[in-house]
């Protein structure tokens, strides 16, 4: 087992353990906080695969944006308004539903893993990815880029509209 594998399993363990805590913890604050470590572990895996830009974007978007929103929601609903968030599972039906969805996702992921055309390269040629990503976004994937921009604009206008409404 060389160093690369040791680091890989280290980050993989962080992701798995913290993801389990997210699902299994009874305290919703622990769940939300554990998600922080999951995101960091995934970012570490990206960096290990030479995708430094994707890794840092993962931290910026998920840790710096989305998770702050989640933790805010959890903090304010439980402490300021005094409403308790229901934690845990309260019926047999939920078990069945969760089981079926998990099974389907597992089958889907396994099929993708087996049938996918994986591009393999040597792990030694490290070079900056930002320039290539920028060039590709502006040429080959310009349509997807513009679609994402329009989606963001719509969200922006919606947020401004809701924010300006007098209660």
């Amino acid at each position: 087992m060389d160093l690369f594998e040791i680091i890989f399993y280290f980050f993989a363990a962080i992701v798995l353990v913290s993801a389990l805590v997210v699902v299994l913890s009874k305290n919703i604050m622990y769940s939300a906080f554990s998600l922080l470590f999951t995101f960091f572990g995934v970012a570490g895996l990206f960096v290990l695969l030479n995708a430094d830009f994707v890794g840092i974007t993962q931290i910026m978007v998920y840790v710096g944006g989305i998770l702050v929103l989640i933790i805010f929601g959890v903090m304010i609903t439980t402490k300021v308004t005094g409403v308790d968030i229901k934690e845990g599972i309260s019926g047999k039906l939920q078990y069945a539903g969760a089981g079926i969805i998990t099974l389907l996702t597992a089958i889907f992921l396994s099929l993708m893993f087996i049938n996918g055309k994986w591009i393999t390269g040597s792990s030694t040629d490290v070079h900056a990815t930002i320039h290539q990503i920028g060039t590709l976004l502006m040429t080959k994937y310009i349509l997807a880029f513009e679609a994402a921009a329009i989606l963001l604009l719509i969200a922006f206008i919606g947020a401004a509209l809701i924010g300006r409404r007098k209660a």
Binding site: D52, F53, I56, T57, I59, M60, V63, G64, G65, V68, A128, T129, I130
Partner: peptide, 12 residues
Amino acid sequence: NIGILFILAMTS
């Protein structure tokens, strides 16, 4: 290569 992005991510 992404030094400045790293700092921005960490401040967030």
